[in-house]
Nucleic acid binder design. Structure first.
Lengths: 218, 218, 218, 218
DNA sequence: GATGAATGAGTATTCATTCAT
DNA sequence: AATGAATGAATACTCATTCAT
């Protein structure tokens, strides 16, 4: 898929190599900080310090505090997708492929917990273009699940209509995020392995209703 | 169920009737404001003004800005439960009962969208006791769903183990909240009626897998 | 001596008997409060509460917070003088009379420690007329000592010129106050009895220089 | 004598040279301001403005308003001692030495009137450690006088017991401060030269009682 | 490119005072 | 006379951002 356009984050520095390096430092520091205290309570000074340079230098690589948040959200998305694709075995087909796609996503979220949580909870603090771009990435991810669901539907393995497929794609996305934003409860009850197993079961078979009452969807 | 303990919010005013009235005004104003700009960007002066009184008066009824957020979260929970219980038809049994419980919850969330969204997104900004009390209320709601699920399980209508029941309860809760925090996408695609129908379908029957691959849970 | 004019403190209440009673309550409460936290850190609400009535009632008897301080300073002075005069034995004459006058003053200060300390430390927070009236009372007290000193000088018992007499009167006044404002140190080292004894000795005989070097005052 | 420990006043600025310079500005401005309106009525913005920089800059060099007061008290003490020591002629001995010590102290107080007055009147507004450290400096000064008094006593020039020496040291300290806190009266009546002369006379010889009545101290 | 001192608009909170009941 | 709810000016302190070195 074609990479989505990114919001332009201004920098006073010319060397693109350096910009990338410094911004990686910033994102790493910011993720940790935002996790601990939240975006609003973290100060730019703290981000600079945690990034390993001065406040002045920080502002050589960003235009505003919000840019930091944008960089975080943007790069978290990229990393999730990168790691996720790495996990996929291209050979699988059918339900197994779908299972694998979902499981891999959940496992990446587990590994990038802090990152995903921050992106998830603070995205709403973005404004204007930044928000637009990040939501586009959200939608792009959702579409990836949609594509997979359509594939199994075309193979005749599931019987969902278009709208149900779309909703299911949202659902998968949210169930991954849920592993982070409800971790205060879920991670006391379940390991990631259990979470993957039970959620797959739930997604595929629901409550395992024994004697289907009337089918809700005619 | 016994009402959960509440955090003590200090007030300089003695008349409890008046306190309740003013705090209701505050909560109403705060919900709207926090929805528009978020908890952190809303100022106490704005809350006071939107509540219809001066900043000084606001502080006669709360001890700190965080108290406002606590009042919002606490009262939203109470209102959700109150409205929800009102919708329930006590006559129903079995899967129909469960269906109704979930549907009623989704519909209440739809009606109280702004309130639920604020509670949902800003709870994390609470600290100390306030956070503890609000999370207790979250857990209490989850337990309500758990009880319903156990009931149908005991009736032999579904085949989930204890942990799956717990997870499913979390899930129902989150699917309600999801209707608010993804409304930017979902509410463009679905009406609340559709959302209810599809999510019930999904919860009960999953993807309607045609030829069950190997069952994930042995 | 003719009573000095007092600053007019406005009251909405007509009954002078009641005014006096309430103001006595206010002064008593204020002295304690100002001692604990100082005039600026004590709030009018606290004064009202400690006085035994509401903030509204407080303002029926005073016009402003500063009036409270004025009432305190004014009444402390009056009480010091009243108690002091009570202690004096009118029969004494000469140095014994002077000794007694000073000793009685020190002892009254000791009894009214909290009151004197507040008056002493917070007088400077008064403004305009209030300050003027209180300083007049200070001067009046100083003059009382001056009169006594002049009396013994006229009896030929001491050899001080007019200016020295005036300074000595200031000194006596300050030595009394010093017992309160340095109590954190003095009252660990001395009892009031000792303080009286040593200060009288010092006032009358100085350092007990053995072989008077050249006399400083020709 | 070993310098007393100082309370740590936090600064966001790293250059110690600059910190010292800016704090000197702050102290100078604060002394003037506190003299005019008192510590409580002076605002931090006023201090900043009078210091020649913005409120933000002020807070780069202090942690709280109280720190300003602490800096004032602390530096006033240091300056008094510094200036005082400069005035002392190390050659003098005996009563002349004592006379000189006291006189020099009074003269320094006269020069640093505003500073001493502020320190004197506002010290009580300090809390916790700050107060502790400032009172330690007070005690240190008192001990300096004590040492001098003991020296002349050992030379057999005066006949005071240990406790009288201690009290006399307090007294000298207070007589210096008195020149500032009663300046509204004293400085109308006396020049500093007169004040020095009369107070020395008083300290050394008391009221010049002609025919010692009974000696107070046996 | 890096630094960090300077800036000042912005914000939560307090508290003396008023006034309707 | 007494009450206490309402008011809003005032104030300490923060922090994103700039810019001279």
């Amino acid at each position: 898929m074609s990479p989505l356009p990114k919001k332009d984050v201004p920098s006073l520095v010319k060397d693109q190599r350096l910009i990338d390096k410094r911004r990686a430092q910033i994102v790493k520091a910011a993720v940790q900080l935002f996790n601990e205290k939240g975006y609003h309570k973290a100060t730019t000074r703290e981000v600079a310090k945690a990034s390993g340079f001065s406040i002045g230098t920080l502002y050589e690589y960003i235009g505003s505090k919000e840019d930091i948040l944008y960089l975080v959200c943007d790069s978290v998305y990229d990393e999730v997708v990168r790691k996720w694709e790495k996990l996929l075995d291209k050979e699988l087909r059918g339900m197994e492929r779908l299972e694998q796609v979902v499981e891999a996503y959940f496992r990446v979220v587990d590994v990038l917990q802090d990152e995903v949580l921050v992106m998830y909870q603070e995205t709403k603090s973005l404004s204007g273009d930044a928000l637009k771009y990040v939501l586009q990435k959200e939608m792009r991810m959702k579409e990836m699940f949609e594509v997979e669901l359509e594939r199994v539907r075309e193979a005749g393995l599931i019987t969902l209509n278009d709208r149900q497929v779309s909703l299911a794609a949202h659902q998968i996305l949210v169930l991954g995020q849920m592993w982070t934003f409800r971790r205060w409860a879920l991670q006391k009850e379940f390991t990631i392995d259990e979470y993957v197993r039970y959620q797959l079961q739930q997604l595929f078979y629901g409550f395992s209703v024994k004697k289907p009452a009337e089918n809700v969807e005619s």
